[in-house]
Design a protein around this nucleic acid. Structure first.
Lengths: 217, 217
DNA sequence: TCCGGCTTGGGAAATTTGCCCGAGCTGCAA
DNA sequence: TTGCAGCTCGGGCAAATTTCCCAAGCCGGA
């Protein structure tokens, strides 16, 4: 049972900052056709609120405490494949964007976008279209992405093992010693993992490994 | 020349996210006594806007591209010691809070606070009082009791800012560009941070930053 | 005033990265 | 059976980064 009216789009807002939520709410409701029917301040509550209100669009920030926002996306989509989820966050890393779409998001908009771009993105995903802000399109274009599923699916067993140890804090030498490989090989894997995942930085690799559950922090 | 009316408090909003600014504006203006007279989306413009509008209170997010928000605080206070500045950010690290007050802020409120707490904080600093949200008070209290300071206490303010951006996934060049520093300086900070914290790996650095709440994964 | 710490960067050697390559293995499909 | 494709493992080499050491300016405290 959707709460959508003949002329409106119902929205569930998920963000951990109350005043940010309230600000969004006012911006969205001033549009006339957008109605915020519920809010949640963490990923765990997001699914409950989704079930209770069956909104047309879920607008959520993926950088929240507790369970990852990606987790929330998967959670919602697993049970309600027709759910439309618009990620709205300050991050603009290619890996994160790909993970979000891979997890089932319909759109990805950064907080640096103009409010008009955000509300238009909401309308787009409500129509079942894919939406993303200009800067995100740019990031993805640069990344010249390959059509894949989860980021980890592109990695071989060895690559994942090395990524795990690397993200755990081990040095290249330690990994080589532990796996009985030459340092050069580990270096090559390191490079290969970065190219495959699109991570441009070791820090991005660690974050990627963490969001995929490869390592805990 | 203050733009304050007999019954109102004029506010300058500084935040790099347009829709967040717009949301704040609506929340504040719905209060009746608060009037947003100007906005700025970076620290550099903040002082210009301050001079032009002489607001009663500056509400600013310290995590912005360009010059650090702390820099903006010092900038404004140096020229207008009676300026009231309320820091409004998602960060709640004790070191950061102390730095902000040290730089001349009158208040520090996190984005996890209730909107009512935020507007009350604005009224408090407008009256010349010091204000902080409950969670900030809690963090400061815990910090003053802990015998072993956080690892971050060994780091200077610039070092913390660079660590935050690095852990967030930014490259050395990007950080240098954001902060208007030479790449060499950022590299030196990177090295210095590793020595001070004892991290032997970039991954360890990211984990450290995450456990200290400097970045979220 | 002097000392110490922060900030900013240069310099130079050591190390790592980025990207190319080949070779041995396995599984799979024609 | 042959052959292709993908994983694993490492060499090579130029380019980039990291690692240290150093210096100068600034500021606050003793």
């Amino acid at each position: 049972m959707s709460e959508v009216t003949a002329t409106g789009i119902s929205v569930l807002l998920v963000d951990d900052h109350p005043i940010v939520r309230q600000g969004y709410r006012r911006v969205l409701e001033s549009q006339g056709d957008l109605h915020v029917v519920a809010e949640a301040d963490n990923a765990a509550d997001a699914y409950g609120a989704f079930k209770a209100h069956d909104p047309d669009v879920v607008v959520l920030d993926i950088s929240m405490p507790g369970a990852s926002g990606l987790e929330a996306i998967r959670n919602i989509r697993a049970r309600s494949p027709r759910a439309r989820i618009l990620v709205f966050t300050m991050h603009n890393e290619a890996v994160l964007v790909k993970s979000a779409f891979g997890a089932g998001a319909s759109g990805f908009v950064t907080k640096s976008s103009e409010p008009s771009a955000v509300v238009n993105a909401i309308r787009s995903v409500a129509r079942g279209e894919r939406a993303m802000s200009d800067d995100i399109a740019h990031v993805l274009a640069e990344d010249s992405l390959s059509p894949t599923g989860s980021v980890l699916d592109q990695l071989g067993e060895r690559e994942i093992e090395i990524l795990r140890q690397f993200a755990g804090g081990s040095t290249t030498e330690e990994i080589a010693a532990h796996l009985n490989l030459s340092v050069k090989t580990v270096q090559n894997y390191h490079y290969l993992i970065k190219s495959k995942t699109g991570a441009r930085t070791d820090a991005q690799l660690v974050r990627l490994a963490a969001t995929c559950g490869l390592t805990r922090i």
